[in-house]
Design a protein around this nucleic acid. Sequence first.
DNA 1: TTCCAGGACGACA
DNA 2: TGTCGTCATGGA
Length: 297
Amino acid sequence: MPKTIAAADRLLSFPLTLRRYQVYGEDAANYFDGKLFRKVFTLADKHFLLSLREANGGVAFNVQPATRSQAVWQTAEHIARQILGLDFPLAAFYQFAQRDPILRDLTQKFHGFRPTLATTPFESIVTSITAQQINLQFAFKVRSRLVRRYGKRIVVDGQVYFAFPTPEQLARVKVSSLRQLQFTEKKSEYIIALAKTILAGELDLHALAHQPDAEITEQLTALRGIGRWTVDWFLARHLGRGHAFPAGDLGVRKAVQHFYFNGKEKREDELRAFARRWGEFANLATHYLLTGVALGA
DNA sequence: TTCCAGGACGACA
DNA sequence: TGTCGTCATGGA
C-alpha cells in the first residue's frame, strides 16, 4: 500500500525536480519517465524497488517486493526525501530571493524546483569522479555501464532494475575492466582505491554527515582523485548543505557570470566571495541559476 | 580539425 | 604557490 509524503512547506514541482534524471540520457540507477521515478535501494543485504509518483498534494511512494517491515519503509521515505530534496527550506529561500531580482525571477519561473540529492555518499562520489572533465551526457553513459556491469540486478513485474554498485563490489574490480567501460585509467584507479579504502575500514563515508565542511574537505581531498570540486558537489548534492557552492564547476561559473557579470570571466575565489551573499541559500541559488541556464531563463 | 565538457595530478619554476 | 601539460572520449 503506497504512502504519501510532502515537503513541510508543500512546495514541490515533481517534473522539474526529477528532470535531471531524464535530460542526460540513460541513468541505469535512477529511472524516470516523466511521471514515475524508480530506484533500487538496499537494506540488510536485501534489495527493494522504490517508486515515486505525484499524488494529491504530495508524492506517493511504494516499495516492492511488498513488505510490512517498518525499517524498510522508513528507509524508503528517507531516500524519497533525498531524491526530491524535500528538506531544503524552499519557502524561506523564496522569501530571501525577493531581494535579488535575478533569483526572484528564477524562483517564479521554476516554482517548486528542488535540488535532488544522491542517496548514498559512495554513489555521490563515484558519480562525481565519473563526471570529472567530461560532458554530462557521456558521464551518464559511462556510469550506467558501471551500474549494469557491477550493480545488483533485481526483477520487479518482469522489469530489470539495478542497484548502484557497493564498495564491496567495486573493490574487487580491475582497472582494465573499468577501462573497458571507457573510464580513464586514472578514474578507474580512483574509484577502485576509494572502494578498497572503505572496505578496509579506513574511511567511513556515512560518518562524514556529522562533520563540519572543513573536516570533510580535509578527509576527502586526502584521497587520490578527489579535489575541491568533488567535495563541493558532495556537500551540495549529497549532504544538501545550504551554503555549499561549487565555485570551481564550469557550469556554475558560467551561470553566475551569465546572470550577474554579463558573461565576464571571474576567478574562482572571486565567485566564492560573491556567493557569500547567499549564505545558507547558496546551494539553492546555485541550482536555480544552473536550471536557468539549462532551460534558457 | 579543433575545442570544450559539472577536474585532478604531477612536474616545474 | 601558481602554472602548465597530460589524461581520454564524445559531440558540436
